[in-house]
Design a protein around this nucleic acid. Sequence first.
DNA 1: GATGAATGAGTTTTCATTCAT
DNA 2: TATGAATGAAAACTCATTCAT
Lengths: 210, 210, 210, 210
Amino acid sequence: MAPQKPRQRDAAQTRARILAAAIREFTARGFAGARLDAVAQRGKVTKGLIFHYFRTKESLYVAALERMYERLRQRQNQIALAGLGPEEGIRQLAIETFRSFREEPQIVAMMNEENLQKGRHVRRSAMVPSLYNPLIADISRLIGEGARGGVFRADVDPVGFYVALSGATYFYCSNRHTLGAVFGRDLFSAAQIEEYEKLVADMVIAYLKA
Amino acid sequence: MAPQKPRQRDAAQTRARILAAAIREFTARGFAGARLDAVAQRGKVTKGLIFHYFRTKESLYVAALERMYERLRQRQNQIALAGLGPEEGIRQLAIETFRSFREEPQIVAMMNEENLQKGRHVRRSAMVPSLYNPLIADISRLIGEGARGGVFRADVDPVGFYVALSGATYFYCSNRHTLGAVFGRDLFSAAQIEEYEKLVADMVIAYLKA
Amino acid sequence: MAPQKPRQRDAAQTRARILAAAIREFTARGFAGARLDAVAQRGKVTKGLIFHYFRTKESLYVAALERMYERLRQRQNQIALAGLGPEEGIRQLAIETFRSFREEPQIVAMMNEENLQKGRHVRRSAMVPSLYNPLIADISRLIGEGARGGVFRADVDPVGFYVALSGATYFYCSNRHTLGAVFGRDLFSAAQIEEYEKLVADMVIAYLKA
Amino acid sequence: MAPQKPRQRDAAQTRARILAAAIREFTARGFAGARLDAVAQRGKVTKGLIFHYFRTKESLYVAALERMYERLRQRQNQIALAGLGPEEGIRQLAIETFRSFREEPQIVAMMNEENLQKGRHVRRSAMVPSLYNPLIADISRLIGEGARGGVFRADVDPVGFYVALSGATYFYCSNRHTLGAVFGRDLFSAAQIEEYEKLVADMVIAYLKA
DNA sequence: GATGAATGAGTTTTCATTCAT
DNA sequence: TATGAATGAAAACTCATTCAT
């Protein structure tokens, strides 16, 4: 299992370092605001090398975007809903979704950027839709179980439901700074997070039970 | 019957034209991506004039931001909740909030930009927090009425409640393009909007009633 | 003797105010560094008015230059050498020349600017040479008297003598800041000035007596 | 036998070329009047490269200023006073100081510019004062020797003495154009220079002997 | 005579990208 | 692979000057 071609391994590692640096820069400043000089500095490589691995700023951005979606997929696959009853499963889903956005602010930032650009790159990617399929399938299953058990209503659109759940938690993270300024609170204090987590979980379950 | 103060009037109008053009440009491309050449062209003024009225790109952006918040304030002041019972009032609030984000995509875009910049400008503005006070007051009143009438729970945090409500609707608009790509739907079709509006309204009311 | 045409008088006064402001600006920043906006602000007039009175930045500069030479002429005419013996007259000349440069830093600054521009404007002015004639005449007379009285040498070039005398005092003022930095002294303290004044006066007299 | 470190050598040479071009431009037009386009053209580099090596116009100016002071230091170190008697040493100093200002007009021009800017940059430089120390030390030594030998007076301030000597020669060069216009002479003709050189040397020695 | 809005050419500065080594 | 010098197009910003009123 030892590396056979150390040169290649260095190359892969260099590439990865550039990509990591690019993600940090793109998420901090957006596509237009990102500076390849800064990426080079952050990644401790020369600017020329960036162009050697990624041909343009744009394709570096696309690579960063895809890396982020991969990470999101990993996150979502880790959300273990199996074995939980409908209500507990949904509650767990709400909590973990919220946690994902909090702990991977890059995902939030890259999505914002993509939407500023009207989804130009995502639209082309075949990978992204498939990413959400298992999740929606899980949600459908939980809602179906609940409905059959008589605890949940039966007319729920799983996609809309997921959008509302995501929105409430995503917004809390993506608009952290403006909301913080407007309401004079630090939204990322432990107490605020705990309180909001309960609110959202209660809300989505109340809806399903209504 | 000549115009009385043509100079002043022209100046104010020119300034307004620049600002309108700037909002469109910042909204479409973000702060870093916006081009003052484009603003000049859109506003049918020379680039020099932009700097005559607004000293830098940054302060033009701040002026645009404040203009957007003013517009949001106007929107929100128009949401007539008075005279409605608690449940109907909250439903109206959800619908109108959703409508605001849909019909003023600039607000959404500018807020995203501000959050990318960690709320740098909003934090300094005294105007913005005051903008939300009446809204939160209205929500508190409605919730209080509902609680006294026995239809709503009594332990609701109005700020958190508003964040969740806003989040569900804001996200739907701000992430329109990525969500559209992911789920293969046009989220801004009339049918989709109507369905989601009902979902959100039902959800927030279910929470209050739970 | 009352002003008959107040309008004209205002005009003259406005013109003078602009000129004074221009001198301050040109002496503070040089020709290229001077900003007509700053002149307008300093003179409390609109920028348009500057162009109304003086057609271009260049001719405003020329007007300022001529104003400065007028002031220098007045200064020099005030140097009363008549009635003094040769040695005392020369000493007085040295002291007053030094004082002129110290008290009219604008003269020094404008001369520097003119030399940066290779004397472009001064060369055209007929007024300037005539300005120095009486002074050189005075110096010649004093030296002649001293020579005839046997106290001064007889082979002195009055122009060269005046250049050396001016140079020693002008340089002290014009290079005040670099010299101050280099030698760590404030050259414009009373003690430093007194000491240097004595040095220069002693030096030029020693030369004439040698 | 290819060049050993072509990259480094080119870089250093390019940098030097830019600096030389900058000195010429700043010298000819002052800081505000200098155009980086002109520097680029003179140095046969692209404008962008100037910013690659020197981050701003201001720091290019500072680099040019320091380069000039270095050259002045070299000049002054070459003035060989050792081995000369006091009188001959001082005469040599006067002649060489005069020659420095004549042959390095950039030094004169840059100093004028610095004084226009009130010594803003020189004040920060630790290098500049140290530059003058050996010179003042030499002067002190010569004056001291002369005093002990009974040929010079004993109460001379070496700094003041140097300022007067410098002033007389600097002024002749720095104000060459206005003086030329005023007195209708070409101050840089060989005859004029020779005559003035003698005058200044005679004058400073007369002072020391008085 | 006076205002101040508007212009446009020019100046500094930035930055993705190329290229020789 | 890797370096880093060099480029060039475009961006922000400045400022003397004009012009309508």
